[in-house]
């Protein structure tokens, strides 16, 4: 009994895959287009997932819509325009470069540049630290200490 239960539990993750629809395509190019599109389009329900990863019902329907358009010969651009006309730029997982998204695109590079700048400043400052000049007495003392250690 326990074994059967364990087996059942171990099999249960497979159910998650059983839900993803299997679509048949006329040719490999259409299938490739479909895969690119569902990776680039956002699921509006679970907003941090693309259509490919989401199993929300709306995502299923949007995948079906994408499939039907790909099959009927629409280009990738046409399908993206179709979705943007309905759901806005938000539907694009990769947002377009616009005034409102400048910070999103440039931000990481900006932060990187600031980090490099701070690093350079530190290194330069360290190099500028004056070399300590020792008097002859101090030299003698340092030598004594070093000699002691090597003995």
């Amino acid at each position: 009994m326990r074994r059967i239960l364990v087996l059942l539990v171990l099999w249960s993750p497979l159910l998650a895959f059983a839900n993803i629809e299997a679509y048949r395509f006329d040719n490999p190019q259409k299938e490739a287009d479909y895969r690119v599109l569902i990776a680039e389009l956002r699921c509006l329900v679970c907003q941090n997932q693309n259509l490919a990863d989401s199993n929300a019902e709306l995502a299923q329907d949007m995948r079906r819509q994408t499939y039907e358009m790909v099959q009927s010969g629409s280009s990738k651009e046409e399908i993206i325009v179709y979705m943007v006309q309905r759901y806005g730029d938000f539907v694009l997982y990769r947002p377009p470069f616009m005034p409102s998204t400048v910070l999103l695109w440039v931000g990481p590079f900006l932060i990187f540049a600031v980090g490099v700048g701070i690093l350079l400043l530190f290194i330069r400052r360290r190099n500028q630290e004056p070399v300590v000049q020792l008097s002859s007495e101090e030299h003698a003392r340092a030598k004594g200490l070093l000699d002691q250690e090597t003995k």
Binding site: L58, D61, R64, Q65, R86
Partner: peptide, 11 residues
Amino acid sequence: ESRAIMDWGVY
């Protein structure tokens, strides 16, 4: 099948 609501951008 979400046919009409997709036209309206409903999510």
